[in-house]
């Protein structure tokens, strides 16, 4: 087996009394898209910034492409590309000049025209950066990250603030990066983004890794189908259906046997003459897994071990 692109064991990072990252293990294989999911403040960005070499870790073992990022070696930075959350480019240069400037910092830059082709900014190549739309600026950020033809690209929340159309384009871009053979470490708080793009997903909450696996394995490990419906005010479903308020005025049944649960529900509703407004049956999504694992008030005992999906990874 070839050495993984990213290898992390027992990573910890404290800021004073706060432990932002409290012991994380990660393995990212070469050529895959790996998504790091988690709510704000979960430790995603801190983890990524340690890997990028911006922060020193408090404890743990970190190897990225065989380097220790904390040493800040030029040889390491020549092999990675970083796309931060904020757009850091000179507004008065053109798109082409910006990519050429950053490319020039690397020993083997990718030709500017090719980079612009990949991110879809060929037509804007002579446009000054300040005149680009928000989505175009974000694509330029990715272009700058690609300028040095890195083996590994860090993408920190690449689609935050995008409209749906721009997000689809960004996803297409990430798929193209994988087709080029790049390893991509993506952070996001959009579940659908991870489900669409990632080969593996890790969910972080409170500085710890809650679960790691393929999106399919995470979903399969949470086999409950959600049945939701609305009842007239004052009507309660019978106890044995196991329905609970979903917080939004509807009722929700979570069941591993949806046929049986649905049958019991509809039989009861028919007998009562209830219409069952807004009846919906949902197969679980990554979002359900995520909410179950990270949501406030959820059972903290729900861990990777209890889901048994760790083996699915690697």
């Amino acid at each position: 087996m070839t050495e993984p692109a990213i290898h992390v064991r027992g990573l910890r990072k404290r800021y004073g009394d706060v432990e932002a990252v409290a012991g994380i293990d990660l393995d990212v294989a070469r050529g895959e898209v790996f998504a790091l999911l988690g709510p704000n403040g979960a430790g995603k960005t801190t983890t990524v910034e340690v890997l990028e070499g911006y922060r020193e870790r408090s404890a743990g073992e970190v190897r990225v492409l065989g380097h220790d990022p904390a040493r800040g070696e030029r040889a390491y930075r020549e092999r990675i590309g970083i796309v931060l959350q904020s757009t850091g480019v000179e507004p008065y240069l053109t798109v082409e000049e910006t990519v050429a400037m950053f490319g020039g910092y690397y020993p083997r830059p990718r030709p500017v025209a090719e980079v612009l082709e990949v991110v879809g900014l060929v037509e804007q190549r002579r446009t000054r950066v300040r005149r680009l739309s928000g989505g175009q600026q974000r694509r330029l950020d990715v272009a700058v990250g690609l300028a040095g033809d890195p083996e590994l690209l860090f993408l920190d929340e690449p689609t935050t603030g995008f409209d749906p159309g721009a997000r689809r384009q960004a996803w297409e871009l990430v798929r193209r990066l994988r087709a080029l053979g790049k390893t991509v470490l993506l952070t996001t708080h959009y579940m659908d983004e991870a489900q669409q793009l990632a080969d593996h997903v890790a969910i972080i909450a409170r500085g710890r890794l809650v679960v790691v696996g393929t999106p399919e394995a995470l979903i399969a490990a949470n086999p409950e189908t959600a049945i939701t419906f609305v009842l007239p005010a004052g009507v309660m479903p019978p106890f044995e259906l196991g329905a609970a308020h979903d917080g939004g005025g509807a009722w929700r049944i979570a069941s591993v046997e949806p046929a049986r649960a649905l049958h019991a529900l509809t039989a009861w509703a028919l007998a009562q003459g209830l219409p069952l407004d807004a009846l919906d049956v949902c197969r679980p999504s990554l979002e359900d897994v995520y909410l179950q694992l990270t949501g406030a008030g959820c059972d903290e005992g729900a861990s990777a071990a209890s889901l048994g999906v760790e083996d699915a990874h690697g």
């Binding site: 990028e52 070499g53 970083i82 904020s86 850091g88 000179e90 020993p107 040095g148």
Partner: peptide, 11 residues
């Protein structure tokens, strides 16, 4: 604007 931080992440 993040330009310094970004530049620091390059070689």
């Amino acid at each position: 604007g993040g330009l310094l931080k970004r530049t620091r992440g390059t070689p």
